[in-house]
């Protein structure tokens, strides 16, 4: 087809404008001198200054990062185990329930996960005296539980794609089971582990609903802090915070893109070299 799809390209441009105009507007208004968040009152960086002098924001960010690091790591370990179990062990007792348990959290509305976790923690505290206080631990446990199933989905898909003959070949060539795992299986599923970890990390870092139910006194994550401010209306310092987050994410994604691009090029070059040396 030589005809240019004018209509499609127009909608694509409109779609990207729709995606990015609100974000751009937020960034522009973060430099707004006026106290009224939506009326332009000259250029100013005072909201950034007030943001950096705000201790609460720093503390909340630190808490969010700690929770996200721990829960993403735990979620990757548990989720990978579940993914391996589903892909490799075709038949075991309770497999149907197990595969139900790794899909249900994906579609469970967050409100319901939130209230069920909170009721669970409150009743556990009453029945067995644990957890004594809700906060860091209960948020982390809830985050691990609902982000591990995302890791499972990613790892499971990757394991199903993997050619099992290469594992058998390694065994036949005399590799010991642990060596097979370390040198064959792990490198094949490591991209899935990485993207699973990143997914779990961002899910944890971004979560409001489940966190708001499982939190306790003194445990305010960054999204909870933003949530409590935003509920009261539009405030200029949130614009500044949002701009910084957008900037950070943009830089990280661009860097990741560059690294992946270079790795891809190197791989292609190596492949070409290998072919040539075979000739």
């Amino acid at each position: 087809m030589t005809r240019r799809p004018v209509f499609l390209i127009t909608v694509l441009c409109f779609g990207f404008a729709f995606f990015y105009i609100p974000i751009l507007s937020m960034v522009v208004y973060s430099f707004n001198g006026s106290r009224l968040a939506t009326v332009w009152g000259g250029f100013s960086t005072k909201w950034y200054v007030s943001l950096f002098s705000n201790r609460q924001v720093g503390a909340a960010l630190l808490l969010s990062l700690q929770i996200a690091l721990i829960s993403a790591t735990m979620a990757t370990i548990l989720g990978a185990m579940a993914g391996i179990a589903l892909a490799r062990f075709r038949r075991f007792r309770g497999r149907t329930l197990f595969s139900g348990l790794v899909t249900a959290p994906l579609i469970m509305p967050e409100v319901i996960t939130g209230i069920s976790s909170l009721m669970f923690f409150i009743l556990m505290a009453q029945w067995v005296g644990w957890p004594g206080q809700r906060g860091f631990t209960t948020i982390t446990l809830a985050h691990i539980t609902f982000s591990m199933v995302f890791v499972t989905t990613v790892v499971h898909a990757r394991m199903l794609q993997m050619d099992r003959a290469i594992e058998e070949a390694a065994m036949d060539l005399g590799a010991r089971p642990w060596q097979v795992l370390r040198d064959v299986t792990l490198p094949v599923i490591s991209p899935a582990l990485l993207s699973g970890w990143l997914l779990a990390f961002t899910i944890s870092l971004d979560d409001v609903v489940i966190t708001s139910f499982t939190t306790g006194p003194g445990a305010t994550t960054l999204p909870l802090l933003i949530w409590s401010k935003v509920k009261l209306g539009v405030t200029p310092d949130i614009n500044a915070l949002a701009s910084l987050i957008v900037l950070t994410v943009g830089v990280c994604v661009a860097l990741a893109g560059l690294v992946m691009n270079r790795a891809e090029k190197r791989r292609l070059a190596e492949e070409r070299l290998a072919y040539r040396s075979n000739e």
Binding site: V39, W227, I238, A242, G250
Partner: peptide, 24 residues
């Protein structure tokens, strides 16, 4: 990319746009 920025802040961006005094 918008996925990776905070969900809450994407909702917030529209609060800014839809308000009575906004340019939008």
């Amino acid at each position: 990319l918008p996925f990776w920025t905070s969900f809450l802040l994407r909702v917030y961006a529209w609060m800014g746009l839809m308000g009575r005094n906004s340019w939008f």
